[in-house]
Amino acid sequence: MEPVFDLVPIWAGIIGFGIIMYVLMDGFDLGQGILFPFAPDEDARGVMMNSVAPVWDGNETWLILGGAGLLAAFPLVYSVFLPALYLGVFLMLAGLIFRGVAFEFRFKAKTSRYLWNWAFAGGSILASFAQGAVVGTYIQGFEVENFRYVGGALDWLTPFTVMTGLGMLAGYALLGSTWLIMKSEGYIQDWAYRITPYLLAALAAVFVIVSIWTPLVNDDVRSRWFDQVSLIWLLPVGALISMAVLLRALKRRDEGMPFVATMGIFIFAYLGLLFSKLPYIVPPTYTIWDAASAHESQLFLLIGLLFVIPFVLMYTAWTYWVFRGKVKAGVGYH
């Protein structure tokens, strides 16, 4: 029985959308944790945490949905990526759990607060680095045979993936600092304005290194970008323009624009990455069609998702709307 229409691209779109939603939203709250040790004082840390407190766990549910959604729609991705990234996944989960617990207890603690600060910062840094290494591993590709991962335990930890891991730290920190510009005021906002150009410089440096390195280590990527000049060159141009917009917005001390421009950088970089690789989803061997589950299985879950996702998006939007505006120092402590 031939399906009436192909659900695979639809599911690729859903998962792709889920991933960028997760990266943008959990990115700015992981960013608070990365910047935590460098914050000017304890009040500033309070504001940083409060600025993401109402939304961070909603942000992380996208990760769980992504994990389960991959198992349902692209089981091959699930069953190759997780064994290949075995230790990285553990570090990421441990990091996320630590910072989740720290989030709850820092508010309720007084004498032990410094401990929760460390747990929050350490967990955020660990999780962010691991996510960057996942991106690097995806670019590197996976050693597979007969639909199984057959590579080693530490293939995901190479100089290249360490570089992408550091890049993710810089990127999330940038999302975090521009988010903070939007949500804070006074000396905390001044501090965020001050550090943002340095974070942007770090991110741009990683971009340059990765952009030169990737075509050198990966023939497929090189031929896609250099064999003939095509429209995909618009994507890095978009990322560059976003960076320029960010710099201009910082100079004019815009409050919302820096965050918007940073999201732009992420989106263009993400699309650039996708167009370097698609339709290969387990590079360099398997395409999205090789990795897809049965048509009936994709359809069965799609029906439920079409019902729930609009609802979740509305609820998410409403939460952000309720918590709009500046976070004041000292508020939210009990």
């Binding site: 949905l65 994990g67 389960a68 089981p75 069953s79 997780l82 996944v89 589950s293």
Partner: peptide, 28 residues
């Protein structure tokens, strides 16, 4: 949500057509 893949990837891969949607419905 991740352990099925990290430690039991053959099981996940082979039974995903059933288990994937069911576990996803739980999350949803």
């Amino acid at each position: 949500a991740f352990q099925f893949g990290t430690n039991w990837s053959n099981f996940s891969y082979i039974s995903a057509n059933f288990l994937g949607p069911i576990l996803s419905y739980e999350v949803v």
